[in-house]
Amino acid sequence: MSALLEVADVGKRFQMGGILGRQEVRAVDEVSFAIAADKPEIFTIIGESGSGKTTLARMILGLERPSSGRILFRGEPVHHENKADRLKFMANVQPVFQNPFEAFNPLKRVDRYLQSTARRYLGARDKAAIEAAMDGALQKVGLSLAEIAGRFPHELSGGQLQRVAIARALIPNPPLLIADEPVSMVDASLRMAIVNLLKALRDDFGVSVIYITHDLATAYYISDRLIIMQKGRVVEMGPARAVLDNPEHPYSQLLKASVLSADDAGAGNLKPANELLQFSNDRLSRADASRLEERADGRRVRV
């Protein structure tokens, strides 16, 4: 198997505090996984705030250097000193951010983002080529250049804006997208449009997506494989359906038990899973001596 992305024993430590009372925070601790080049998939990273999922994404994007371990994209390290190499890497791995209203400058027309992306990564010079690239990417997300041209961010809905953000990321035809909480700021009625779009990108255009979320329901809906992170450590990883149908680690069980379900609407089922919280905190306090163990169904669980 040739790997598109290989994350091997990656860790990130931050120093906090002054010269006296310095503290070390392990934001990410020995995370390993690989994404195959020949099989597009949606790889989900699940975690609460402070679990290190965004730090991991920033390291994959080369915005942050790992303190230990290595991240290889097609066999090459993701961190480039040379500007041309960096640009080449960025054309292959593109980000989509959480809040589309913050990702776009309110005073800038949204199509200018698409234009500059096309110009930079595709090296397109003449207007027709740029517009063809813009329209092609917008078509993939269910929009068209005619709808978007000349519009400011406030003239589009959150869902449309997030689709434009994804279209922008698709312009260089990257094999890998990093989507950091792409639906958490989008309204409920438009959320499924974005999630279905990520699914279509995988199925129809062969784009692999690293989908970062705290929402187990959409993760179950679209992902092939997932990892669940707690305080920087992977506690459970494996095939998405197998793990979420039957989570083994107490923290995964806690997350699943905390998902509000609409199945028994009106029953007022709000009892917090305090017992599981206790279990998962117990495990966390002993986490330093733990390791990931292989299971028969392909998952790995921290014990």
Binding site: L156, S157, G159, Q160, D187, A188, S189, L190, R191, M192, A193, V195, N196, L216, A217, T218, Y220, Y221, R241, L244, D245, K256, V259, S261, A262, D263
Partner: peptide, 26 residues
């Protein structure tokens, strides 16, 4: 129809059938 859509588009754990997305914008 709008509430029917809101209810139907909720993803659930244990169910991977295609969820509808409402087209258009508010």
């Amino acid at each position: 129809p709008y509430s029917a859509h809101l209810v139907a588009s909720l993803p659930r754990i244990g169910d991977t059938t295609q969820r509808p997305a409402l087209e258009g914008r508010p």
